[in-house]
Amino acid sequence: MNKKKEPLLYAQGLKKTYTTGTVKTEVLKGADVEIHAGEFVTIMGHSGSGKSTLMHILGFLDAPDEGKYVFEGKDTSKFDDDQLAEIRNKKIGFVFQSFNLLPRTSALDNVRLPMIYAGVPEKEQIIKATKALESVGLGHRLNNLSNELSGGEQQRVAVARALVNNPSLILADEPTGNLDSASTKEMMKVFDELNKKGHTLVIVTHEDNVASHAHRTIEIHDGVCKRS
């Protein structure tokens, strides 16, 4: 890695505390992260270590209480709701552990959703969604409803949805957590290919075999990051 090049994103001293009733839990206690374009990084840690919270902050789903987060050279702390929505739409692609597809909706329509919010014309939506689904090996499943697909297939639809707006960063939160080992292998093949094509990937996982595909792993322990 060329460390002198401007990173895609970097965060310093991220802190986050959750309050449940009167109990305060400090989840992040000053985490530092730096990700460069084209990297394939995994974030690992025990459950409760703050790895999901870190990913939510990196993906603009949540905001830190303290700390600096610079994305593509811009300090993000002053962004308003609409700017955040636009970043989530154009710059970030999410893959969730529980797939999060719209029920009773076709694979194609699920993949079209981010483009609908981006205001892409309908014809272009269909062409791009079809290509994205083909790239994850689901060219034959375009019109199947989400609930007619297997777990592995559903997650691949989710990956297609994540990459369809050509984001700067794809974030995946335990993407193989609900998959069997065969589906996991296929999923990792898809991620490897995406990275080879130049996509920046950050995957939260606690599985070593998933982490072994990455260039490097960020270990998060007790709310603080350790670089490996």
Binding site: L61, D81, D82, A85, N89, K90, F94, Y117, A118, N165
Partner: peptide
């Protein structure tokens, strides 16, 4: 959860 998903995909509050 669906609203959360939609927002994560870039839906604005207004939409």
């Amino acid at each position: 959860r669906e609203i959360g998903l939609r927002k994560s995909l870039g839906a604005t509050n207004r939409v």
